[in-house]
């Protein structure tokens, strides 16, 4: 169908025009980060500064941001599962693992934002907890543990937060399809109607 081709062309065109990751650290914080942490790889993601941080330096990097770069707030943390992502773009030198663990930092003093991303492998889904550095991420790290199964080392109370404690699996992982998880109900196995029946008729 002609229309189909047009849509495909448009998508291809968009893909070509999309912002390619560039390694030029024009952001002063990112430049300072590379100087302090030589393993950090910078990226400009559509105008937003991103630092790819090795998993081993994750907490050290956050402490440095808080203490020396005036990033007072860790606005948000979350994980991304790239199991099925075929269009993934990572700057050269960053090892592609299954999970991205993403933290957005905010500096009110400098009106700046910075996003830090660490690669978390599927075989060993652990990363240092930022809760001792930024208490604000307490709940969201628990949420990430709950929904992705990433374990945070050093978190003071890592337990499920949104799902019941006895839930099995981690629903935001891509291999946990929305319809493939049987809904886990608890409570009485019989209905009130069945319980009202004479004993011998009950199931």
């Amino acid at each position: 169908m002609a229309d189909d081709e047009r849509t495909e062309d448009a998508a291809d065109e968009a893909r070509e025009n999309a912002h390619e990751p560039s390694a030029t650290p024009d952001n002063p914080v990112v430049a300072a980060a590379i100087e302090r942490f030589p393993d950090v790889i910078a990226e400009d993601s559509a105008g937003q500064p991103v630092a790819h941080v090795p998993r081993e330096q994750w907490r050290e990097f956050a402490e440095w941001l808080r203490d020396e770069q005036q990033f007072e707030v860790c606005v948000d943390v979350c994980a991304v599962d790239h199991l099925l992502n075929r269009d993934r773009r990572l700057p050269a030198g960053v090892p592609a693992e299954r999970f991205d663990f993403v933290a957005n930092f905010l500096s009110r003093a400098n009106h700046g934002r910075l996003r830090a991303i660490a690669q978390v492998p599927a075989g060993d889904p652990t990363i240092a907890s930022l809760t001792p550095v930024y208490p604000s991420v307490d709940y969201s790290e628990r949420e990430t543990f709950d929904l992705f199964g990433i374990v945070f080392e050093g978190h003071p109370g890592l337990e499920r937060i949104l799902l019941p404690d006895d839930w099995e699996g981690h629903p935001l992982r891509k291999d946990a399809a929305a319809a493939a998880v049987p809904v886990q109900f608890k409570g009485p196995k019989t209905t009130p109607f069945q319980r009202a029946l004479p004993k011998e008729d009950q199931p």
Partner: peptide, 19 residues
Amino acid sequence: IHHFKIFTEGFKVAGGETY
């Protein structure tokens, strides 16, 4: 057809991330 395609298939967004 155009209307139908936007509401069934949607439009594609090139790879990337934003906050």
